[in-house]
Nucleic acid binder design. Structure first.
Length: 517
RNA sequence: GGCCCUAUCGUCUAACGGUUAGGACACAUGAUUCUCAAUCAUGCAAUCCGGGUUCGAUUCCCGGUAGGGUCACCA
């Protein structure tokens, strides 16, 4: 069997990470078996169409390295891949279903339908179509058509039948009593198909072998089975069907991410400076598990290791800690050249090219207000055109202490901006509070005596001099380092001081030591 | 509410009926260290509840509970 999987989103919104993870599985399944991965554009809802969403979604899947073999943008032998261009196909299928008694025309008005639902609601009955048009006579249909009364086509769910299918993701056998399944609309009165008709027809026409889709489709799978049957597609010819779990938002336990959750948008974490392979890696393990304890996978390795039996059945909760951990691993694994490449690429291609709204929403947080975010964005602008060699040294110093590049940015800020408004009351300086100024003078004279060319400084000598100062004041050596740190970097946390001083240079270090009294 | 699905440390998960229930993140402690990290070591921590089946149940069955999905001329 040739494996053909598909991803079939509607252009009604922007891709989020759940979307990425679903594409990932479809992609892996096709690639693993040397098959084809198809992108089908389900643009049958004209009212909800969101301009630009298809382009955004496609662009971001490619950003993540998830490419497809056939699709609306690149064509393929099963074209067209926009459902709006396949209307005749669906109409013919609907006719065929009517002929064979698997569907019928429904002339009920929207008003009648909503009244009926209200009534059912009142009586606390199950909400469903009452089947009024199921058995209207041929002559009545004829006259309705003549009067051009608008109609929809509904599936004629059989009575008293057991309908079943095997879910290849959750590995469960699911059965329904057909009496409990509604006569869903297949063709809308505007001539456009609903998902149920269009997806079934296209999956068959495009020879899709495996359908992986969201769990929201489980309930309508019996409808799809009946459509297959009506279209004369045998069980053997139908694709395997599996349903995904949904990723839950830890801030609202048990609930999925809302569309408004900006960091969940496909570009969100990238804007924050997470590496795409790290995001993918975390996504892989959120919903799928390997046979062993392995956790690190490149996309290629994932494809190789992928196996349907590792798919999870319960909804996973997003864990930002683990995401951060993965990203740290990937940042630390970067070679010096790749580190600077990734970092500058982040600034130029994401920080300043993604929609300003997305950038703002993703970077502001509880402890970063808009003003502060703008300061850092200004810094990024400066760094973009600054000296590459210096930047490389700075990044190497922060590499093993960075969660993401946005974090890196604030860590290297002191290289570009003299600290202002230093808080000398912090607890890290408690033990040398009284001698602060004296020690600072000694540090100034120490730095003054060092070579004008900071690349000639010797680490051992520098460190020995500082320790000597500690002895002189009978303070812990670490306290002297801390004072130097606060003076030069503006805060109690920083990259290693010797290297930082070297990058800043003698003159700048002295200015900082003399300032900030 | 009807129908359907799911249920192992706080989180992600492993354990073809037999394990001291394993790993990872997080957390805690220690080592290292000029801070923060990184790294290494150690520790804390779970089979939703109740019945069966079985010599033996995390695993199979039934019931309960909890969570999720769905009940549109949306996908």
């Amino acid at each position: 069997m040739i494996v053909r999987t598909r991803f079939a989103p509607s252009p009604t919104g922007y891709a989020h990470l759940g979307f990425v993870s679903r594409v990932l599985i479809n992609y892996a399944m096709a690639r693993k078996h040397g098959g084809k991965f198809v992108w089908r554009n389900e643009d049958t809802d004209r009212e909800r169409f969101v301009e630009g969403s298809l382009e955004f979604n496609m662009r971001w899947m490619r950003e993540f390295g998830l490419d497809w073999d056939e699709g609306p943008d690149i064509g393929g032998s099963y074209a067209p891949y926009n459902q709006s261009e396949r209307l005749d196909i669906y109409k013919n299928a609907a006719e065929k279903l009517i002929e064979k008694g698997y569907a019928y025309r429904c002339f009920c008005s929207k008003e009648r339908l909503s009244e009926m639902r209200e009534e059912q609601e009142k009586k606390k009955e199950r909400k469903h179509y009452d089947g009024l048009c199921r058995n209207i006579s041929a002559s009545e249909i004829e006259s309705n058509l003549k009067k051009s009364i608008a109609y929809t086509v509904r599936v004629k769910m059989p009575r008293d039948r057991k309908i079943e299918f095997d879910d290849i993701i959750t590995r469960t056998h699911i059965t329904w009593n057909s009496n409990e399944v509604d006569d869903y609309i297949l063709l809308k009165s505007d001539g456009y198909p609903t998902y149920h008709l269009a997806a079934v027809v296209d999956d068959a026409a495009m020879e899709i072998s495996h359908v992986f889709r969201g769990s929201e489709w489980i309930a309508t799978t019996p409808v799809h089975q009946i459509i297959y049957e009506g279209l004369g597609i045998t069980e053997k010819e139908r694709p395997g069907i599996g349903h995904f779990t949904v990723i839950l938002d830890p801030s609202t336990p048990g609930k999925k991410f809302s569309k408004r959750s900006s960091s969940f948008k496909a570009n969100g974490l990238v804007i924050q400076g997470y590496l795409k392979p790290a995001i993918l890696n975390y996504l892989m393990l959120l919903g799928w598990a390997p046979k062993d304890d392995r956790e690190l996978f490149t996309l290629k390795e994932f494809v190789e290791a992928f196996d349907l039996s590792g798919m999870q059945k319960a909804n996973p909760t997003w864990d930002q800690n683990k995401m951060d951990w993965f990203n740290g691993i990937y940042i630390r694994a970067l070679s010096p050249d790749n580190l600077i490449k990734e970092f500058t690429n982040w600034i130029t291609n994401y920080l300043f090219k993604e929609p300003a709204e997305d950038v703002k929403e993703n970077l502001t947080s509880a402890d970063l207000d808009v003003k502060r975010v703008n300061e850092l964005l200004d810094l990024a602008r400066v760094i973009k055109d600054s000296d590459r060699d210096a930047l490389k040294c700075q990044l190497l110093l922060t590499q093993e202490r960075s969660i993401n590049f946005w974090h890196t940015l604030s860590q290297i800020e002191f290289f570009y901006r003299r600290p202002e408004k230093i808080d000398w009351q912090i607890k890290q300086l408690n033990k040398i509070k009284e001698n602060l100024e004296e020690i600072k003078l000694d540090l100034i004279s120490m730095y003054s005596s060092m070579d004008d060319n900071s690349s000639k400084w010797m680490h051992a000598k520098w460190e020995k001099d500082i320790r000597r100062l500690g002895d002189k004041y009978r303070k812990k050596h670490g306290d002297i380092f801390m004072l130097l740190r606060v003076s030069i970097t503006g805060g109690p946390f920083s990259p290693p001081l010797f290297e930082s001083s070297q990058i800043l240079g003698k003159e700048e270090c002295l200015i900082r030591l003399k300032n900030n009294k």
